[in-house]
Amino acid sequence: MIALLLMGFGIVALIQIPGLIKKQWWRELACFTVLWSIGLVLSVMLAMGITLPPVSTMINQYISGMFGI
């Protein structure tokens, strides 16, 4: 599962990075890498069975608390 994931992320990187390097868009490359890494870390966590916080549910609780619904 994780291998598949890494492969997928690898393909994404392979499509994008050479073009960016060729055009010398370093800023874009940095942004891409940061976003890509966040995605990678999160999805590896998901694949390893670590539950990430359910965002909408948290917002739900927060707003419910605020308005007392």
Binding site: E28, C31, F32, L35, I38, G39, S43
Partner: peptide, 16 residues
């Protein structure tokens, strides 16, 4: 360049 990474983040957000 950032379409795919953001798309992946959106998918992860949808999953969680």
């Amino acid at each position: 360049p950032i379409i795919l990474p953001v798309g992946i983040l959106m998918v992860i957000l949808a999953l969680t």
